[in-house]
Design a binder for these strands. Structure first.
Lengths: 242, 242
DNA sequence: TACTTAATGGTCATGTTGACTATAAACAGG
DNA sequence: CCTGTTTATAGTCAACATGACCATTAAGTA
């Protein structure tokens, strides 16, 4: 085939998006899943997603589907950092027809159950801890594994971790994000030193210190800083993940 | 829209692949481009690529197109490490119709001009230095820039750089790969120390040392080692790239 | 033979990391 | 009200990695 696109030479495919949206809840990594209502894989859990419409980019479609299917607030969905993971295009990944799917990942702070928002498709959406997830529809188990791996390595050299935290957070919360995603224990003073030594990673909230909540000495509050990457990176210890 | 794929709800798209294949030649980063023969963008340079066929995955299509369009040897193409970059899906990226393109990157050692292989589409393929590249068809300039950035950061934490080198190479050649891609000068003894200290990055070729070629003391030859990632990474100096 | 070039072998000060100890500020319970 | 528990925060120290150099070796070349 030549450089040009010959309009007679292509077979039409369906193009969809799939989303692996993570949160940290109670020390465990959770992913947002929906229960399928129809064949194939009726009753199975699946990643939220759907068709890209004629005038949408994949990313636009991903935001729309996320809002429609999970009832996350419009505002949150619009502001969310969506990262394109990769595209899955094996010919038989959907038994009915040829479907090429662009997968995205996102991180959100701990949120109420999506169903709480009200009716519609969101009623079938739930957060599941990763080890509760067994059978997933289509090749979604592969997508989920790829997404988890991507998130883990992104934490090493980007400031992405703050995406799992509320707008103001303690260094302990930030550390537990790393520990949960990497499934490792980190030394608290060292973690603190590293984070504070990285310019722009976090910045102290002016006058505040969390008081009432937990036991123990109240922790200072921080906000995400302007930096997006970590130089040098915060590498996970040798045998982590999984 | 619900979790399921409703067969009546989707618009068919064309799905293509595009390839950004790099090599290092004469101290400059080169990319493999083809001259378009038809509208739109007739006469412009473009990344090699083409339609995904009904029974192909995107990666299979990428290998096929690369072999067809550039005349690189089947063997090389089959063994090549193809990395999926990302998918480009803006609605108007192709003026004629809705085309979603999955982009790949690859690295090859310095090779003869593709046209040398013989006829066909390969006749329109050429290696161009990155700063000779001006106008590219479609959104290929964006894809190329993304690919360059990806390659640059991949060099930091993977052993990918050996992919630019012939099967046996000197540390000087390896270093010049880094210097070319990052567009920075590196200290030779320090680079050497770092590479040799990373287990599995390179291994010495048993009895050999390059003699005749250049002036100066002959350099030892190395082969790629079994490692795929660099721990800790080999970070580029602050203000590099571009 | 002297000069140039590039590879290779070092040193040294600095910065970062991992392991660990110590102190401070809250709460819980008797 | 005192004591122990919990968590945050501060600091120390050795091992290691890095950047900036200098020195030596082994080729080709004038």
């Amino acid at each position: 085939m030549t450089a040009g696109y010959d309009p007679y030479a292509f077979e039409p495919f369906a193009v969809t998006v799939d989303l692996a949206v993570f949160t940290v809840r109670g020390g465990a990594l959770h992913v947002l899943l929906i229960r399928r209502g129809q064949q194939p894989y009726a009753g199975a859990w699946a990643l939220p997603g759907g068709f890209v419409l004629p005038r949408e980019s994949a990313e636009t479609a991903a935001r729309r589907e996320l809002a429609e299917e999970t009832g996350l607030s419009e505002q949150l969905v619009a502001a969310l950092h969506l990262e394109q993971l990769r595209t899955y295009s094996e010919p038989d990944r959907d038994p009915r027809m040829r479907v090429v799917s662009v997968a995205f990942t996102a991180l959100v702070p701990d949120l109420p159950e999506p169903a709480a928002e009200g009716g519609g498709d969101a009623a079938h959406a739930r957060w599941l801890a990763l080890d509760e997830v067994t059978e997933l529809a289509f090749d979604h188990a592969v997508i989920l594994a790829d997404a988890r791996e991507r998130i883990g390595s992104k934490l090493e050299y980007t400031c992405l971790a703050t995406g799992f935290c509320p707008p103001e957070f303690t260094l302990g919360e930030l550390q537990s994000v790393y520990e949960t995603v990497w499934n490792t224990a980190l030394d608290r003073p060292n973690f603190r030193r590293k984070v504070l030594a990285t310019p722009g990673f976090v910045e102290a909230v002016p006058g505040a210190a969390r008081l009432t909540g937990g036991r123990g000495k109240p922790a200072a509050l921080y906000r995400p800083g302007p930096a997006t990457t970590l130089h040098p990176p915060l590498l996970r210890p040798e045998g982590s993940s999984r």
